[in-house]
Design a binder for these strands. Structure first.
Lengths: 341, 341
DNA sequence: CTGAAAGCGCTTACAG
DNA sequence: CTGAAAGCGCTTACAG
């Protein structure tokens, strides 16, 4: 039982600036200044303080610093279930580059609608400096952030509301892809979109329709399914014409469902790709580039998008008056083996 | 310039328990008690406080609470570049289940050796309650945690040091896989291991050798490459015998490199799988189950492993005297199309 | 059940 | 360049 009142995590846990000050017979505020970049302190004393701090294992408590500075150096990331599947490198890259600027990423997973409100409450309670949201947030949730005055940046989702965002220009990419298909002679296009209400799905559809506008003899059918590999079978069922035929070209909103379509077509349905059917996609996810798939399509410039997200986040923290900014990035065409274009 | 002293993130940012207290003409400590589960307060007053808090948008500042409680409710996760690729669901599941227990995941990405020390310093500065580490940490880094008295749980890495860990039993799984290959008639096995010094690679090799011990006519060759898809070509080059032949069975440490081997064999090298060569793997990563791959092998019970990690983390926080515990989980055999076993 | 006071570990004017 | 003091927003004995 003895000693169980020792606070925190163990041996070095309770060391404060006061301990370092005592060891050196100086004031606590001087120790604090040694760890404050730009503060007025003699270099010699600072070196002694650093040495003493090193010896006793002192590190400034960032929670306390955050409390007084009104700045936690925490960036909240709202994480949806599929985020890591769609953007496997995002979290690592984002957190790495933010760390260089002194920020740490705090994760807020969201599931159903109930947990969204819960996550917002926790985000608020942790006094994060800004929030990046991937995945589904509705307008009500987004407004809640603004009410709290919390800088919010959306990733791959643009609202009509005044919210900053970084996104791939799916509409332009889809228009480009559809135009390539049309020029290659395709007139019957099937769109494998996201779930009903999906932002990406709507944008892609908009782009495809814009491309089709100039071609009177072209037709489009749309299937709304979720993003899973397994949903491809359902999508293909939905896209069948009355005569039982399938569109000669499939435009998919992401790699996973595109891979599913490819396997369905080549396997169960006995079609050749791109001989009988062309398949194009939005992606860049590793396996879509593996030799057995090599999907033709558009690749999101994730590297630039990540940098842009960081700039927006950090910019709004530095200057809370800085306005809403939407950055949109054109995807780049990616050669592959699945489309005759 | 006016109003630029407003602290924090904007409108609701500066609301404290004192504001709520003032609005209700009660003391600040009473407001605090309303938000402390189990604290002594009349239900009627608590309801009034909750209502007032709701109206002005007050939420307790968890940083301040953490400061005084000596407990931040933060769990640090050391994130390596390949973590999300190897375990795409880990972060979402882990953070979601921890959130249910009131903990938040704080990310600490690590790259080169320099950044490991840096990450440890930041972890320490944020006063996280415990740390889960995936990916590479050397013994020195691990010892640093123990010196600070920081509860540490390793994921899929076991040290000789007294460190808690959750891991898949790669050795047992590899022994099982190798035995299946041997019983199916294979006598020439190639191991595509992880990089030199990799824990998983060493464990798998140990397991395979244990299986081979009973079979005098069996032989094993080992190639150490990294985990990337592209490394498969190099691995196959390393595994060639002097007569130019390849082992009849390939045991790969993960899905990505196994998929690479499969594509190399079926593509460039013109072999049939599993006709000419059998390929088995450790994994469960989605694309390895897609129809074009359907890799045969062992699947890690990620769900149980995630739960175990949470129990260990939370357990050590609740009772810092709780001892070191290593939990090991047997992988389960996964049928597929790539091995004649 | 409620309030006044001390204190968590820091930063930051303010004097000297 | 350094120190004493106030205060960030909370929790928690201690009285009443």
């Amino acid at each position: 039982m003895a000693g169980r009142k020792a606070r925190g995590a163990g041996s070095g846990a309770g060391i404060t600036s006061r301990d370092v000050a005592k060891a050196l017979n100086i004031s606590q505020s001087t120790v604090s200044r040694a760890f404050t970049p730009g503060a007025s302190i003699s270099p010699a004393l600072r070196d002694r303080i650093f040495a003493a701090a090193e010896k006793v294992g002192y590190r400034p408590n960032l929670l306390a610093r955050g409390l007084i500075a009104g700045k936690s150096n925490l960036i909240g990331v709202v994480l949806a279930r599929q985020t890591n599947l769609l953007y496997p490198e995002l979290l690592y890259e984002l957190s790495g580059r933010l760390a260089e600027r002194g920020y740490q990423v705090l994760l807020f997973p969201i599931g159903d609608a109930a947990s969204v409100q819960d996550a917002i409450n926790r985000i608020w309670s942790f006094r994060v400096d800004a929030v990046l949201a991937t995945g589904v947030l509705d307008e009500a949730a987004v407004s809640a952030f603004e009410q709290h005055g919390l800088p919010l940046v959306m990733f791959n989702r643009v609202f009509d509301l005044p919210i900053s965002s970084v996104s791939c220009d799916f509409a332009a990419g889809a228009r480009d892809l559809a135009t390539r298909l049309l020029k290659a002679g395709h007139r019957d296009i099937g769109l494998v979109g996201g779930p009903e209400g999906s932002f990406v799905g709507a944008e892609v559809e908009r782009g495809v329709r814009a491309a089709l506008a100039g071609w009177a003899d072209a037709r489009l059918s749309v299937a709304h399914v979720d993003y899973r590999y397994e949903s491809a079978a359902e999508a293909l069922k939905l896209l069948r014409r009355e005569d039982g035929g399938l569109p000669g070209a499939l435009l998919c909103v992401n790699d996973t469902v595109a891979a599913g379509c490819l396997d369905q077509l080549r396997g169960t349905l006995g079609r050749t790709v791109p001989g009988d059917v062309s398949v194009v996609t939005f992606g860049g996810f590793g396996p879509a580039r593996w030799q057995s798939y090599r999907l033709t399509g558009m690749q999101q410039p994730m590297d630039q998008m990540t940098d842009a997200a960081i700039e927006l986040l950090v910019g709004r923290i530095a200057d809370s008056q800085s306005g809403v900014e939407r950055r949109s990035f054109l995807p780049v065409f990616m050669e592959g083996d699945t489309a005759a274009i």
